Simulated assay, not measured.
Amino acid sequence: MSFTSAQAQSDAKSDALLAAAAAGRAEEVTQLVRSGAPLEARDAQGRSALLRAVAENHVGVAKTLLEAGASPNTQAANRDTPWLLAGALGRAEIIAAMLPHRPDLSIRNRFGGNALIPACERGHVEAVQVLLRSGIDLDHVNDLGWTCLLEIVILGDGGPRHQQVAKLVLDAGADPNLADRNGVTPLAHARQRGQQAVARLIEQAGGR
């Protein structure tokens, strides 16, 4: 087989794997992996097959790709990785499957954040529970100057799910007094927004 035809075969398998992963065709993904399809092939936006599976919440496909050696750290053009996107979208089961594969906790999303910050902001309770098992930095500050706790308050609605994630990160040791760039603390933000239940949780954790 010539180099050109071998490359064409590899490219065809790459395209097929990306399409099958995005569509959740688990059997096809398994067959393509067994046939040697490149696991880290990317589409025009730099998205790997695993990232596309995460985006569509195809849990079985994601697990197959991870077990075959697909990386949770492959970064797309928009700076998403499978790990970061799983946090942002609340893919708790996929996050749990990624943990043994040592996701790189130092990679940042396009806002300079880690996987925990958007998971908290969106009130993804189950995802936050799993993320906290990874050793992730609870007090990481993103490019906006916000921690996960600040995002819970500033971008959340103070409802039951945001209360739950606030309690989870505070119980795990998040600093209740890390202020924003203007020196406004999470407790002050919560009070300003009338988020009384979240404010109580912050106070109970030593927030001032």
Rank of each mutant, 00 (worst) to 15 (best):
S2M: 01
S5I: 11
Q9D: 05
S10L: 02
S10Q: 05
K13I: 00
K13D: 00
D15F: 01
L18D: 06
A19N: 08
A20W: 03
A21G: 00
A22R: 01
A22E: 06
A23Q: 07
T30N: 00
T30K: 10
T30D: 07
Q31C: 00
L32N: 05
V33K: 03
R34V: 01
R34H: 07
S35G: 03
A37F: 04
E40I: 01
R42E: 11
A44T: 12
Q45H: 09
G46W: 08
S48I: 04
S48E: 05
A49F: 05
L50M: 12
R52F: 09
V54E: 05
V54Q: 08
G60L: 01
A62F: 07
A62Y: 03
K63V: 09
T64G: 00
L65C: 06
L66P: 07
A68I: 03
G69M: 04
G69R: 02
A70D: 03
S71I: 04
S71Y: 02
P72C: 02
Q75D: 05
A77R: 14
A77F: 12
D80M: 06
W83D: 01
L84V: 09
L84M: 10
A86R: 05
G87D: 09
L89I: 10
G90L: 09
G90E: 09
G90D: 09
G90M: 09
E93C: 02
I94V: 13
A96W: 03
A97Y: 01
A97D: 06
L99W: 00
P100W: 00
H101K: 05
R102D: 06
P103D: 04
P103Q: 02
D104Q: 01
N109W: 04
F111A: 14
G112L: 14
G112M: 14
A115P: 01
A115R: 02
L116H: 06
A119F: 05
C120I: 08
E121M: 14
H124C: 08
H124G: 08
A127S: 08
V128G: 07
L132K: 08
G135T: 04
D139I: 11
H140C: 13
V141Q: 15
L144N: 15
G145N: 13
W146G: 11
L150D: 11
E151V: 11
E151D: 15
E151Q: 15
E151H: 15
V153I: 14
V153T: 06
D157L: 01
P160Q: 14
R161Y: 13
H162F: 12
H162C: 13
Q163S: 10
V165F: 12
A166H: 09
L168E: 10
L170T: 12
G173S: 11
G173D: 13
G173E: 11
A174E: 12
P176L: 10
A179C: 14
N182I: 15
G183T: 15
G183N: 15
L187G: 09
A188M: 11
A190M: 08
R193L: 15
A197E: 15
I202F: 10
G207M: 00
R208T: 01
